[in-house]
Design a protein around this nucleic acid. Structure first.
Length: 921
RNA sequence: GGGCGAUUAGCUCAGUUGGUUAGAGCGCUGUCUUGACAUGGCAGAGGUCACUAGUUCGAAUCUAGUAUCGCCCACCA
């Protein structure tokens, strides 16, 4: 093995070996354990959020595989309607073409071609990360199976009366020219303007003033509303106003939607262009007047002067015209919430179109009950609040999109506009007795991406085809075990899966939902291309030099003027670029950062620290392997106390990891392993057994120790494997021969079982560590030559101390660098020695004439302070009668023991200080 | 306006049903190239647990309130 751990030298080789061996396929035996990968967009590349979540999923999958479960990680990718169309459109434009030169079929062919070429980027990147999925079961939402599920679902929902089509106000993106869902609209507070406009009464008896942020929509006003209790306007209700610029007569109505406190208390009502106004219009029986084309230009409903104008040009024109007519009362800045499409960034219009909807009433109830009664559990549990809130306020789900890329809606129209929903055109004709001569035209809309995603749990397991369900393990793997995802898609996806899988299969899609935090940059900022703070997980694995990183971050910016700032910031943060940490270090970092209920500030120094940790493991392994040799080690059990101790510590670590993982506390699991490997195994165990490996006097124990070394390392590698699969597999291979392990790969080796800790052995070694640390501490603080060995004298050693000194003397001598250990009478004067308390014992280190009294006094003084503080605290507690009376006996007892210890230490230190002072004078 | 979360060492975070002198990593200080490892060893320094009040023998932990920050949801034209 090389002296330094080099991840790049081993990671890729293992991915290939594992996959070739088929060890990631479900075993078919054992209790099923299944995780559904939230399908990433086919357009996508792996970002930090993916890498994070995939690491956690893979970690769970690997642990359960090692525990012998029948493990399936169901992977796949999503066709991502809008996102993909935008990517391909941009590509066409980059080639100098135009999207509208393409026919529907040609465009779709182009998208498929693109999918063929680049659709596997993200899965290739997942492999780099070590994802142990059964890739032979990879699905795409537009594959035949999932597509059949989509059609079947649509038809059945329609048959059940749960799908309807109709004209409704929807969120309309005038640039993409499609409806989008509420969830795809992001509301930003932006600085706008508020205009006050005078609407004259038709009878000439004055006028009313209305306020609006969107004056152009007045062309579609149907009435003006006032609050029914607003005494200012009681006589106005029922009368009419003359709508400026159009001359249309519109009535004044009373509706308690109006807030009489705001503005003048009069509101213009435009049902076709505002969701609230739509409801007011409905209540009062007005027909909405749509004044926009799908591109949000003024249409022919409006006066000629405005037709064809873009919505923003129309606004300017109308404001100018109103002013000219003296009808503009006021114009002032106004902070308002502006809806924008999350894909296009454009201002969304409420727009009246025919769309398909799924009724959410009883599906919503089902979704709510499923979580309320615990059939699906959220981890952390407080996410149930978010889920509940949304489910209780569900709107019908608009599922149609005016796009080309996606599942086309299975509905056909005849010339009269009658609609026939069926699984195919043939079925439509058959069912409704339509002869071949009658022309049918399929609905041109597609279903929104989340419609197929909602079916993902059961559609990837063969539903609705009974044969495929049998072959793909529908019964076996549904419900899946846990869904790992971010809070941002609880509504988009999690809720809809719970409803759809529940409705169609009677099962839950997953038993638990583990909601992860968001990965942010070092400063807590969300990572985004436009901020130029994105980290690419692949760059953390392979490393990247600073120029390449800057180039990557500043390439194709939406706002080129940001370039200089991004470059400056990037060069400051990564003056040397990013070193290659390797996938294992990145994975371990993700696990270690994965606390609950908190976003994650991704700090490169953590990654570096865990890379160093793996290097430490690498070198400890080199040491173990050097001694384990390349031949089968002799059998036998090592009952030496140090062996029992390290096994005990390992047992505790295994127990801690098991417990942590059961609660999805990856951070605690990672920490337990880290601490065991570094603080126990490397810092103490390896050092403690060195005499047995090197000194001839201890040769009798050599084989037993070699075996223990190999066994502990074996279990440690198993424990660490789900977190850092590559390096552990690489090392573990070299243990197979010494330990006679039959299994071929660590990836499929058995998970270690936690034994019962050995308290006696732990107490012994704890004592040993106290003595050694005490000596070391005294040495350093007195600046005694660290390389030089020196004698140690011990006073006040009790029976067990003497017995332990006897057993551990050699080890103490070696680790504390002592030339001798001698028990001396308690009354031996310690004035020429450094004194260190260790348990009940006094450790004396002769200062051999080099006494720096001041330093020793300072050192003792510091110890005394510490002990006095402790004594004060315990005395105060014990003096409190109510503490003694009320606290559990064990707690009081512990406090008494502590008190005695402190008191004793204080006395010892005081005496020693006095002696030293006397000597110095 | 409603909801959720956070606030612990210079930085990033643990702290499990209340019970030592509140821990870790990074950074910092000193020191050491000892036959696994300088991506290291050893030894240190560093905190009024945001604030206030309460419950309790005992509070970082429980309760109420305050402050600051963050996120989600919401129809004020």
């Amino acid at each position: 093995m090389e002296k330094t751990y080099r991840p790049e030298a081993l990671e890729q080789r293992w991915t290939e070996t594992w996959e070739a061996s088929g060890c990631f396929r479900p075993s078919g035996e054992g209790e099923p354990y299944c995780i559904l990968l939230p399908p990433p967009n086919v357009t996508g590349t792996l970002h930090m959020g993916h890498a994070f979540q995939h690491t956690l999923m893979d970690c769970l999958i690997r642990v359960h595989r090692m525990r012998g479960r029948d493990t399936l990680w169901q992977v796949g990718v999503d066709h991502a309607g809008i996102a993909t169309e935008m990517v391909v459109t941009r590509q066409i434009e980059a080639e100098g073409g135009r999207r509208d030169e393409y026919s529907r079929d040609d465009f779709i062919a182009r998208v498929w071609q693109w999918k063929q070429e680049s659709g596997s980027t993200i899965t290739a990147q997942m492999r780099r990360l070590g994802a142990s999925a059964d890739w032979s079961r990879e699905r795409f939402t537009m594959d035949a199976g999932p597509s059949e599920a989509v059609i079947e679902t649509f038809v059945r929902l329609h048959e059940q009366g749960r799908i309807y089509r109709g004209p409704r106000l929807v969120n309309w993106d005038p640039v993409l020219k499609t409806a989008i869902s509420d969830l795809e609209v992001v509301n930003h507070e932006e600085q706008g303007r508020l205009w006050s406009i005078r609407y004259p009464r038709t009878d000439g008896q004055g006028d009313v003033v209305v306020a609006t942020t969107r004056p152009e929509t007045m062309l579609g006003d149907v009435c003006v509303a006032v609050h029914p209790d607003d005494e200012r306007y009681t006589d106005l209700v029922g009368r009419t106003l003359t709508l400026p610029l159009t001359g249309r007569e519109i009535p004044v109505v009373a509706d308690d939607y109006v807030d009489p406190e705001f503005g003048t208390g009069c509101v213009k009502i435009t049902p076709a262009h505002d969701f609230n106004d739509w409801e007011v219009g409905e209540r009062h029986g007005f027909d909405p007047i749509n004044i926009f084309t799908p591109e949000a230009r003024i249409n022919d409903e409006a006066p000629e002067a405005y037709r064809g104008l873009d919505r923003f040009d129309a606004r300017a024109r109308i404001v100018a015209d109103l002013e000219a007519e003296g009808l503009l009362v006021d114009e002032k800045p106004h902070a308002m919430v502006v809806p924008r499409g999350d894909r296009s960034g454009q201002i969304i219009e409420p727009f009246l179109t025919d769309q398909w909807f799924v009724k959410m009433d009883d599906l919503g109830r089902l979704g709510l009950e499923t979580v309320e009664n615990g059939d699906v559990e959220f981890v952390p549990g407080n996410w149930i609040n978010t889920y509940r809130h949304w489910m209780e306020n569900l709107q019908d789900w608009c599922i149609s999109r005016q796009l080309w890329w996606g599942h086309r809606i299975p509905a056909w129209y005849d010339a009269d506009g009658n609609v026939y929903v069926a699984r195919s055109e043939d079925e439509a004709r058959e069912r409704h007795g339509i002869d071949a001569a009658t022309e049918l035209r399929q609905d041109s809309d597609v279903l929104e991406t989340w419609f197929s995603s909602a079916l993902w749990a059961h559609s990837t397991l063969g539903w609705p085809d009974p044969e495929r369900m049998e072959a793909e393990g529908f019964d076996r793997y549904l419900p899946t075990s846990v869904l790992v995802t971010g809070f941002d898609i609880i509504f988009f996806w999690v809720a809809r899966m719970i409803m759809m899988t529940g409705h169609f299969t009677g099962r839950v899609p997953f038993e638990q939902v583990y909601i992860t935090g968001l990965i942010r940059d070092r400063d807590g900022q969300k990572m985004s291309k436009s901020k130029g703070n994105v980290l690419d997980p692949i760059d953390l694995i392979d490393g990247i030099d600073i120029d390449a990183l800057v180039e990557k971050r500043t390439r194709a910016l939406m706002q080129p003027k940001m370039k200089a700032a991004i470059e400056k910031h990037t060069r400051e943060e990564f003056p040397e670029g990013i070193p290659a940490f390797g996938a294992d270090a990145l994975r371990f970092t993700f696990a270690a950062l994965a606390g609950h209920g908190r976003d994650i500030k991704f700090d490169l120094s953590r990654c570096e620290g865990y890379r160093n940790f793996l290097n430490k493991l690498w070198n400890a392994s080199r040491f173990v392997l050097m001694h384990a040799g390349e031949e089968r080690l002799p059998d036998g059990r090592d009952d030496d106390v140090v062996a029992r101790w390290i096994r005990s510590r390992l047992d505790r670590a295994i127990g801690a990891v098991d417990e942590a993982l059961a609660g999805y506390r990856f951070d605690l699991a990672a920490r337990a392993i880290y601490e065991f490997v570094w603080n126990e195994f490397c810092d103490w165990y390896l050092e403690l057994v060195k005499p047995e490996l090197f000194d001839d006097a201890e040769a009798g124990r050599r084989d037993a120790t070699r075996r223990t070394l190999a066994e502990i390392l074996d279990a440690t590698l198993r424990l660490l494997h789900p977190f850092a699969p590559f390096v552990t597999e690489e090392i573990w291979q070299r243990l197979r021969t010494p330990l006679g392990i039959e299994g071929e790969h660590l990836a499929t080796a058995a998970w270690p079982a936690a034994g019962t800790p050995d308290a006696d052995a732990e107490a012994d070694v704890e004592w040993l560590k106290t003595v050694i640390s005490g000596v070391r501490s005294a040495r350093t603080e007195l600046n005694l030559a660290p390389g030089k060995t020196m004698p140690l004298m011990v006073q006040q050693a009790g029976k067990s101390d003497r017995e332990r000194l006897d057993r551990f003397g050699d080890r103490i001598r070696r680790l504390a660098r002592l030339e001798s250990i001698e028990i001396v009478p308690d009354d031996r004067d310690a004035a020429d020695c450094a004194v260190q308390l260790a348990g009940d014992m006094r450790l004396l280190i002769p200062l051999a004439g080099l006494v720096d009294v001041e330093e020793e006094l300072a050192r003792l003084g510091k110890q005394l302070d510490r002990e006095r503080k402790g004594l004060e605290s315990t005395e105060k507690k014990l003096a409190n009668e109510r503490f003694v009376a009320n606290a559990p006996e064990a707690v009081v007892e512990k406090e008494r023991a502590r008190n005695a210890e402190h008191a004793r230490a204080v006395a010892e230190l005081e005496a020693q200080i006095e002696k030293l002072r006397a000597m110095a004078d």
